[in-house]
Write a protein that binds this DNA or RNA. Structure first.
Lengths: 135, 135
DNA sequence: TAAGGTACTGACATGACGGTGAGTTCCCAG
DNA sequence: CTGGGAACTCACCGTCATGTCAGTACCTTA
């Protein structure tokens, strides 16, 4: 049942708790930790879904809009801009008419989704049971 | 339960992605998918941090408040109540004076954090670089 | 007597998140 | 020559998430 040790590049995730929670405080739980910012981008309502969508491959603006159901144009633009600034998503615009813009994951983005997908998998698999248990 | 296979060669291999993104739409990206609800709980700003804090072991109310820096009492209560309803966190109150309430992860919660910690690890490890890259 | 710790709950305010709808630029189909 | 699609931006506005502050019950310590 060990899930954490199968990251391709050899990074060990075995006792990650100690990294995340140094004894004297700090780590992710420190108020001023920069990871708080990135964490908010990555775990934002629409950020997660966009990353999942792109994990299968490159998508155009309009495709993203359709595939991530319920997202507004404003939120899609905002989410993509944030993820692009973070170097997680790559934006490639063709100067053609009509315009064509492709979005894909960078290497960094692929590293991220490697760790995100197992979580999403679990949530998807357990959501029904979790909600059923509480009426 | 299919644990998503790791992506080792850059291109996504058929795995959990297909579960998450069925060809005809649906999956996590469907607007009415129940996983959206659970996802919001789990990836909420404070939810993530509380889960990380509890991943090392049982904590009391006051300990959580101190360890998760910046959280208000209201948000801590609200977050814990949500996670408890979801069967992810276990609340045990001793009817002693002064009151003592212990919070810990359920089995379900431990399954979840197994998948959450690698992600948090990565975010922590890369946050500085990500923020530095954008000035 | 007062102050403080423990584990909360509830009222109130505010500010950010997110939705709506319009506007833009260029081209092509009808 | 009107309409529509592509990929956005912008202004407006509402609601909900979050923060702040006060209050509660009981006991211990100063």
């Amino acid at each position: 049942m060990t899930v954490s040790s199968q990251v391709s590049d050899g990074t060990t995730t075995a006792s990650s708790v100690d990294l995340l929670l140094p004894r004297g405080g700090g780590g992710v739980l420190a108020a001023q930790c920069p990871s708080r910012v990135v964490l908010d981008h990555v775990t934002s309502k629409w950020g997660v879904l966009v990353l999942v969508a792109l994990s299968r491959g490159t998508l155009r603006w309009g495709e993203l809009r359709r595939v991530v159901e319920g997202i507004s144009e404003k939120m899609l633009a905002q989410t993509l801009r944030t993820l692009e600034r973070d170097g997680i998503v790559l934006r490639e615009a063709s100067p053609t008419i009509p315009p064509r813009v492709d979005y894909s994951l960078t290497d960094r983005g692929r590293e991220l989704t490697e760790r995100l997908l197992p979580l999403m998998d679990w949530v998807l698999a357990n959501a029904d049971e979790i909600l059923a248990d509480q009426g």
